[in-house]
Design a protein around this nucleic acid. Structure first.
Length: 557
RNA sequence: UGAGCUAUGGUGUAACGGUAGCACUACAGAUUUUGGUUCUGUCUGUCUAGGUUCGAAUCCUAGUAGCUCAACCA
């Protein structure tokens, strides 16, 4: 990014092309976009694309972006969601110009409805939802006019005011636009504008008992805010005709809608309904469960905002259907964490190594906090006669090209000495109790004069000073690539191994871990402290594993 | 069986009538006190059929395929 000047210009996505065109031909001097979540769930990785897009556009071009909550359905919306959404947008690194709510405009919207009635373009319909569905027609057959379609303006006005005043029960009447029941676009077949809901709204309380539908709130809110580019996903393409119709008939500021294809990611689900099920039915511990594709889940998992922004940037924006490989998300987080994570050593499945010719005590070694970052400094690691190494870093009968510890074989202990396996001590049942090694005193890391070259380097931890920690190893939540496309319930395809809780033996420096720290446990993966951790008990979440070339080698056989 | 949208390697995305490129993945190799990182190389693509043109991924026509549309959800 810093040397963008000497690179050829990055190609524009189709929205940037449209905007540059508008800016160049003077349609607009600056632009206004908005991010319009409905506060009925937590934001997920799919929303991140939309956030990066909308806010990114006004970082790149003159203008600003509003955060606007589409809160027109009080029965599903809650303040908790409003707060989480604001947190998540900020955490991702974006700040809005104005915080707005569709509910801020309820008075105006009501006036707009009256205006439509007065123009003879809206009517109150007494039909039940079943009757309306029956009259709606199908994509291939025209619908039928409602018997209430030709009420007088006066009657419509009277009825609508009474709807607002609470004289009718939920569902008793609706306000509909009077367009064309035979329209080829189903959304233009007299769409419902207002419905009656005697429900408590998270912001307007009990003032209203009629609420506008999406189509009579979204475009109008855009218009009120003078949004120039109202960007949404492809499923709203058919709505655009209605969007434009309402703005035209209302004679208000002409915002315009542009659509891009929602980003899909394999091995996960991103429908709010499904995510809500996972939470409510306790398949996960909450919206911020580290296995969830929510922003708060990814955050708790240890993803960085930078890595998520990078991911959104790499997958781009287009109009065609897509299925992004979750591996790219993992690549992005590894790429960032590699640069910033502090290196630490943790042994998960320990086997004791006794260094029989070592008689030192209190020796302290130094190791770099991050070989990618000289400014990260060094840390101290105690060394001793008894250490732990990973059980699978030792094999009695190793295959070819096994560079780890084996009888007679030598390895480097990271930032310490070279050791040689001399003897394997076993219990009566044949299981390995400990391994006896000798070390090469002149092979000390940083001042090695031994002249010995070893292929393998192991992480280790001094037995006496090892800290016992809990590690939560997360894997993808679903075991199939397209959970939604499978037979039956998507929940049947949850990966039973998506969470494994294991014990780890950590080097003492980890005692100072703070919530915002990111770690690479050497040769294992990237980890962060979980919010469940206490001073007595350190708990780490595995963000993502390191790439494992050896595992691949083994698999090949 | 109406209408709309979309079709470029395994995946995502460029090329705006003029050499199909980039990234991820995969594979091979080099470097490495993390079998990580880094570096080098390789494989794989324009949905089909016609047409326009000196020249088509790009423009036109017709097919085909996928997605979307019949919530008092957004």
């Amino acid at each position: 990014m810093a040397d963008a000047t000497n690179k050829e210009e990055k190609s524009l996505n189709f929205l940037e092309e449209i905007i540059e065109e508008h800016l160049n031909n003077g349609t607009y001097k600056s632009i206004v976009t908005r991010f319009p979540p409905e506060p009925n769930g937590y934001l997920h990785i799919g929303h991140a694309s939309s956030i990066c897009l909308n806010f990114g556009l006004t970082q790149k071009y003159p203008g600003y972006t509003n955060l606007r909550f589409d809160d027109t359905n009080p029965v599903t919306e809650e303040t908790e969601y409003v707060e989480s959404i604001k947190d998540d947008v900020r955490w991702l690194g974006f700040e809005w110009k104005y915080e707005r709510y569709a509910s801020d405009y309820f008075d105006t919207l009501y006036e707009y409805a009256l205006k439509l009635i007065d123009k003879g373009l809206a009517y109150v319909d007494d039909s039940t939802s079943e009757e309306m569905a029956a009259m709606k027609g199908t994509p291939t057959e025209p619908g039928k006019d409602s018997p209430y379609r030709n009420r007088s303006v006066e009657e419509n006005r009277d009825l609508f005011v009474r709807m607002k005043n609470g004289e009718f029960q939920d569902g008793a009447r609706t306000l509909r636009a009077k367009i064309d029941m035979a329209h080829i676009n189903m959304l233009m077949r007299d769409p419902i504008l207002y419905r009656i809901k005697h429900a408590h709204h998270h912001r307007t309380g009990d003032i209203w008992c009629i609420y506008p539908m999406y189509d009579f709130a979204h475009g109008q809110s855009d218009s009120i805010e003078e949004v120039t580019h109202s960007i949404c996903t492809m499923e709203f393409v058919p709505h655009r005709e209605l969007y434009d119709w309402l703005i035209e008939k209302l004679e208000i500021y002409p915002s315009h809608q542009y659509e891009f294809a929602r980003r899909n990611i394999n091995y996960t689900v991103t429908s709010k309904r499904k995510l809500l099920q996972l939470v409510n039915e306790n398949y996960v511990t909450g919206w911020d469960d580290p296995r969830m594709p929510t922003i708060s889940g990814l955050r708790r998992r240890g993803y960085t905002p930078e890595s998520i922004r990078e991911f959104c940037d790499r997958i781009g924006v287009a109009k065609r259907d897509n299925m992004v490989d979750v591996g790219l998300l993992e690549f992005c987080v590894r790429e960032h964490l590699n640069k910033i994570a502090l290196r630490r050593m943790v042994v998960f499945d320990p086997i004791k190594v006794v260094i029989t010719n070592y008689n030192g005590s209190g020796e302290v070694l130094q190791s770099e906090n991050n070989p990618e970052d000289a400014n990260a400094g060094l840390r101290e690691i105690p060394f001793s006669r008894e250490i732990y190494i990973e059980r699978d870093d030792f094999m009695e009968n190793p295959p070819k090209k096994y560079f780890r510890l084996a009888p007679g074989q030598m390895v480097r202990l990271k930032s310490a000495y070279i050791i040689k396996c001399e003897q394997v001590i076993k219990a009566a049942d044949g299981s390995i109790v400990e391994i006896h090694c000798t070390y090469m005193p002149e092979s000390k890391s940083g001042s090695d004069t031994s002249g010995i070259n070893v292929k393998g380097t192991l992480h280790w931890v001094s037995a006496a000073s090892a800290l016992e920690v809990e590690v939560r190893e997360y894997d993808r939540l679903f075991r199939v690539e397209y959970p939604t496309d499978e037979e039956g319930d998507f929940k049947d395809y949850i990966n039973p191994g998506s969470l494994k809780v294991v014990k780890g033996y950590a080097e003492p420096a980890l005692a100072a871990a703070k919530p915002e720290d990111r770690f690479q446990f050497l040769r294992k993966g990237y980890y962060c402290l979980d919010k469940d951790a206490t001073d007595e008990k350190l708990i780490f979440n595995r963000t993502v594993t390191l790439k494992d070339g050896w595992a691949k080698e083994v698999k090949k056989g």
